[in-house]
C-alpha cells in the first residue's frame, strides 16, 4: 500500500521567491546607485581632509554614511524610519506617525467626499442624457489641469474665507479621487445587458427600482476598482495640498521641510511612509471588496 501524500509545494510555485528576487534586485541596484550618486561628495570629503590614500572600502562605506546624501542607502532610510516611527511619541512633531495621521485624515475625508460625489455624478450622467453630454467634457477637462498648479490656489482661496487645515487638503483629494469613481460607476451602472433591463421592464418597475435592484448591484465590481484608483489619487492630493501649507504638518510638509534642509533621508522615509499608507488603504479596500462580492455570491 502506498501512502498518498500531497505533493510538496515547491518554493518556485509560491510568490515568495519572485517577490524576494525582485526586492533583492532593487536593493542591489539601489546600493549601486548610492555609491555612484554620492561619489562626488565623498571624493570632496577625502579631498578636504587631505586624505589621499583611501581604500575602496573606505570610499564605499563613506558613500553609505553621509549626512545629506544625494541618494541615501536603504539601511539609512530604514534607520530614519525606525527613529521617526518607533522611537518617537506619536503626538510628537518629530514622529512620522503623527504626520502620517494628519495626511491620512485628510486623505480619508477627501476620499469619502470624492467617492460620494463621483457616485452622485455617475447617477446623474446615467439617468440624464443632457447631463451626460454637457458634464462629461468638463469632468475630463478638470483632470487635465495640473494639480500642482491648482492646489496652492485652492489653499489660498479657502484660507482667505477662513478655511484652513483639514478641509482644503481634503478638497484637493476630492478633486483627484472623484474622477475615477465617475468613470468607473458610469460604466458600472451601464453594465446590465439588454436582457436584464428588459426583465425589469416586463415587471413595470420604476427607474428607482431598476437602479436599486439592477444597476447598483451590477456596478459593485466597478465601484471597488475605481475606489482603489481613487484612494491612491486621494493620498497624492492630500500630500500635494500639504506642500503650500508647510508648517501645518503631514507627510507633504515633512517632504517640504526635508527638501529645505537637504534632509534627503527624511524625504525618503516620508516617501516610504506614503507608499505604505497607500498600499494599506488599497489592501483594506480589496478586503472589503472580497467580503462584499462574496456575499453577493460571486463564484469563488
Amino acid at each position: 500500500m502506498t501512502a498518498v501524500t500531497a505533493p510538496r509545494r515547491r518554493l518556485t510555485e509560491g510568490r515568495a521567491v519572485p517577490v524576494a528576487t525582485m526586492v533583492l534586485a532593487i536593493l542591489v541596484i539601489w546600493y549601486a546607485c548610492t555609491i555612484w550618486l554620492n561619489a562626488r561628495w565623498q571624493l570632496q570629503v577625502f579631498d578636504r581632509a587631505g586624505q589621499a590614500d583611501w581604500t575602496i572600502w573606505q570610499f564605499v562605506a563613506g558613500t553609505f554614511a553621509q549626512d545629506r546624501p544625494v541618494l541615501p542607502a536603504p539601511h539609512q532610510v530604514l534607520v530614519e524610519l525606525w527613529n521617526s516611527v518607533a522611537m518617537q511619541d506619536v503626538t510628537s512633531r518629530r514622529s512620522l506617525v503623527y504626520h502620517a495621521w494628519i495626511t491620512l485624515s485628510a486623505t480619508l475625508l477627501g476620499f469619502v467626499m470624492g467617492t460620494v460625489l463621483g457616485i452622485a455624478l455617475a447617477v446623474l450622467i446615467v439617468h440624464n442624457r443632457a447631463v451626460d453630454r454637457s458634464l462629461m467634457p468638463w469632468l475630463i477637462a478638470s483632470q487635465t489641469i495640473p494639480i500642482l498648479a491648482i492646489a496652492p490656489m485652492i489653499v489660498v482661496v479657502l484660507a482667505s474665507i477662513g478655511l484652513t487645515g483639514l478641509v482644503p487638503k481634503s478638497l484637493i483629494s476630492t478633486y483627484l479621487s472623484f474622477f475615477p469613481v465617475v468613470v468607473g460607476m458610469v460604466k458600472g451602472f451601464r453594465s446590465p445587458d439588454a436582457l436584464q433591463l428588459d426583465l425589469m421592464r416586463t415587471y413595470h418597475s420604476s427607474r428607482g427600482q431598476v437602479f436599486g435592484k439592477l444597476r447598483w448591484p451590477s456596478a459593485m465590481p466597478y465601484l471597488f476598482t475605481s475606489m482603489k484608483v481613487g484612494v491612491a489619487a486621494s493620498l497624492v492630493g492630500a500630500i500635494v495640498g500639504e506642500l503650500p501649507t508647510g508648517a501645518a504638518g503631514g507627510l507633504g510638509s515633512r517632504l517640504l521641510a526635508g527638501s529645505y534642509y537637504g534632509q534627503t533621508t527624511q524625504i525618503w522615509a516620508a516617501l516610504f511612509m506614503a507608499a505604505a499608507l497607500s498600499a494599506t488603504l488599497i489592501f483594506v479596500i480589496g478586503l472589503v471588496e472580497r467580503i462584499v462580492l462574496k456575499r453577493m455570491g460571486v463564484r469563488p
Binding site: 436582457l195 436584464q196 428588459d198 426583465l199 416586463t202 413595470h204 439592477l214 448591484p217 453577493m296 455570491g297
Partner: peptide, 18 residues
Amino acid sequence: RKARAYGYVFQAPALYPW
C-alpha cells in the same frame, strides 16, 4: 404590461447572479 398581465421567459435564464 403595466397591469402585469404576463410573465416573460427569455432565451437565457437572465437570473441576477448576485
